[in-house]
Amino acid sequence: QRDGWSVMEKLKDNPITRHIPVHFMSASDLNMDAKRMGAIGYLHKPVSIEELSEGFKKIEQFIAKTLKNLLIVVDNQPRQQQISDMVKGDNVQTTLAKTPAEALQQLRQVPTDCIIFDVELQQQSGIQLLEQLQLHFSQIPVILYANRELTPSEEKILHRCAEKLTIKAVKSPERLLDEATLFLHQVEANLRQEQRKMLQMVHDKAAVLAHKKVLIVDDDTRNTFALMTVLEDKDMEVVVAENGKHALEMLEKHSDIHLVLMDLMMPEMDGYEAMHKIRGQPHFRQLPIIALTAKAMKNDRTKCLEAGANDYISKPVEIDKLISLMRVWLYR
């Protein structure tokens, strides 16, 4: 028996079904999570007949629109060409903008399905464009392309905007293509051969997880054992810490850890303080941390992201969803 999240992951992992539009209905308020997975809409239960009717209308309109509009915002000519060549397709109309002002003007004039922008826009205006998009164009998915690590201030803006904006930050051409085809709902069979090969490499699930070292920080031995069993079955190496203080010691001892699963409520040092201390060390600023939250409340999510988490998942942990999140952050 599978829940909607597991079905969604299966659909979006399968090249035959990945382009099919999915509209979520759920009693949980996880709208942004669904849209980051590629959902075209989200209805929060209980759903009225009027809302359901609007949802079906949205699906009909989406299916009827065969030509997708992609806006690429980049001011460097070689980079512009690289991105355009990477994502171009038969049913994709690409428009280029060199400045945030040009991008906003284009968005006001043409219905846009996806935005790709380079973090290296002049005078760091690229990351600031996010705040404008969040205010006026939050319905459009955004892909932030950065071939460097984001600064702490950029990460802070990114996390803040992610509360209302469907945004993915990527660092590799393969991930850029993967997210663009997801949000543009392109049929993989219609892509160029080199594009299909790149996507096959991205979705090689076993290769992304195999031989990676994960630190689990949790004072509940039952949770730790359950997670360890699942991860070791996927050829991952697992290190365990029982609280935040112990986690810091383990990170110093195991400098090759690839990802941290951090419980928030622990004795001696909780997850919030531990994440804050981890991010205070320059060599751990880019270490992926997924927070394990007891609730799915918006305030809890914001608090854990501000403390230094890259992402979060609520307990009891849905293993399929956790593995999906881990793949995303390990592939970056």
Rank of each mutant, 00 (worst) to 15 (best):
H136A: 09
M201F: 07
P141K: 03
G89W: 02
D118I: 11
L107K: 12
K10D: 15
Q82N: 11
S125C: 09
D220E: 15
A307G: 13
H203S: 08
A39D: 09
I40K: 00
Q132T: 08
R108P: 04
N76Y: 13
P46R: 11
V170H: 09
M250W: 10
A146W: 12
D33R: 15
W329D: 02
K321G: 03
D178V: 00
L121T: 04
L305N: 07
D3C: 14
R18V: 02
F137D: 01
M201K: 12
L209K: 10
S153T: 14
I143D: 00
K245H: 06
K168I: 03
G308R: 03
A294C: 06
R332Q: 09
L150P: 06
A34M: 08
E60R: 10
N190Y: 07
Q109M: 08
L209N: 07
L231N: 04
V110I: 14
N310D: 14
P152W: 08
Q193M: 13
G89E: 09
A210W: 11
A27S: 15
L227I: 06
A189S: 14
S26T: 14
M25Q: 04
G126S: 12
A103M: 09
D235V: 08
L182N: 00
L43Y: 14
P100V: 03
S138E: 12
E273F: 04
L129E: 02
R2A: 03
D320Y: 07
N91M: 06
T224K: 11
V73P: 10
V238N: 13
Q1N: 13
E155S: 04
M37G: 04
K245V: 02
N147I: 05
A291G: 01
A146G: 14
G38V: 08
P46D: 13
I83V: 14
E9D: 07
H159K: 09
Q139W: 06
P173H: 08
K88P: 01
V230Q: 09
Q128V: 03
L184G: 07
R192V: 09
L264T: 07
G271D: 06
R2T: 09
R36V: 10
M32R: 05
L287H: 05
I40F: 03
V239I: 15
I157E: 03
A97E: 07
S324D: 00
K245Q: 12
T95W: 03
H258L: 02
R279T: 11
R79S: 05
L248F: 02
M86E: 14
L184Q: 02
D256T: 07
V87E: 01
G89C: 07
R301T: 10
N243E: 04
F137N: 02
D13P: 00
W5C: 10
I63L: 02
N31C: 05
T293H: 04
Q105C: 08
I115C: 03
P15V: 08
D90G: 00
A39I: 00
Q105G: 13
K171G: 15
D270M: 09
F284N: 15
G41A: 02
A206D: 09
Q61Y: 05
L150Q: 12
D113R: 13
F24C: 12
A169D: 00
